[in-house]
Design a protein around this nucleic acid. Structure first.
Lengths: 163, 163
DNA sequence: ATACGTGCAAACGATTTGCCCATTG
DNA sequence: CAATGGGCAAATCGTTTGCACGTAT
């Protein structure tokens, strides 16, 4: 969690700046997004939003999240498992994701050389780099503390994770 | 396309080696897969298979493709657009994909340093590298020949491609 | 023979959308 | 007040599955 005062959340402000009509539900969803420091899917966003204000439907969460993505305020991610996950767009502050295959937890990491590398690859192939998608899947090295909760990534539909 | 004689296709052989019962439809699907040099989705596989032998249903294609993936014979890919795409598993011959954002065409490329780099990242974060997913999205540099067919990637559901 | 594969249609899970009422600017 | 957003339920879309029947081993 980041702010959480009574004033407009960061996302809410961005909404206003983008000329969006600010309804009660949007304000709530905006707050939930602003406060999130993970990568919730729509169902989870709905859960959190409904906890703050019951007058919200999943449909609205879907609509809002799509709208915010189109405005560039949110970024949609696909970590496999069939549901889209969202995080606030941090602009040029690019980072990538390492997914713990044992519990589905997501760790963010940076790797500056990386995008440069990919830019070169695109160039070499005769393309202009537009964007990239990179996910790393790993298993916690059995060193220090025991593995946290044993399996959040339980009944994933059809885990998109390779090999 | 690669072979296409009357003998068993490469995939069919692999099926046998994996102890799979070889039915007519599996043989057909196996041939289609063996002959493909692109990344077809289920619908496309079905189209191609049905062209060779009408006694095939989509359900069977789905079942077969899933089976082959579980056996490690096929690899499922997700290039955004909502449908899974398949290609024959080439073992350690890893390669990545560059998707042309204008027409959805997929270009394969290699980048040996890459996996090593990711392995190091995982290590640094306290994880053992399990696998990774990398897709590059690019726009053909407006240099030589004109852009091929203008838009195969038409009505994609919700293109997973970032930025 | 017997276990396994297949076609068909119904079931599913995530996401979208039509309709009609509620709210915002 | 005119334009937009929201709730609800029905609709979509890719994919899976139950069931009764066919086929490979």
């Amino acid at each position: 969690m980041k702010s959480q005062s009574a004033e407009e959340s960061r996302i809410a402000q961005l909404c206003v700046e983008h000329g969006l009509k600010m309804t009660g539900q949007r304000r709530v969803i905006a707050r939930v997004l602003s406060d999130a420091d993970d990568h919730p899917d729509v169902e989870e966003l709905y859960r959190r939003a409904a906890a703050l204000d019951a007058r919200i439907s999943v449909a609205t969460v879907y609509r809002t999240v799509r709208l915010l993505e189109e405005k560039g305020i949110l970024e949609r991610r696909d970590f496999g498992g069939g549901r889209a996950r969202y995080e606030v767009n941090e602009g040029d502050n690019h980072h990538y994701h390492l997914i713990d295959v044992d519990n589905g937890k997501v760790i963010e990491f940076e790797d500056p050389e990386h995008e440069e590398l990919m830019r070169k690859v695109a160039q070499r192939l005769g393309f202009d780099f537009v964007s990239m998608r990179l996910e790393l899947f790993g298993k916690k090295r059995p060193s220090a503390q025991a593995t946290a909760k044993p399996a959040v990534a339980s009944k994933a539909k059809r885990s998109g994770e390779p090999s």
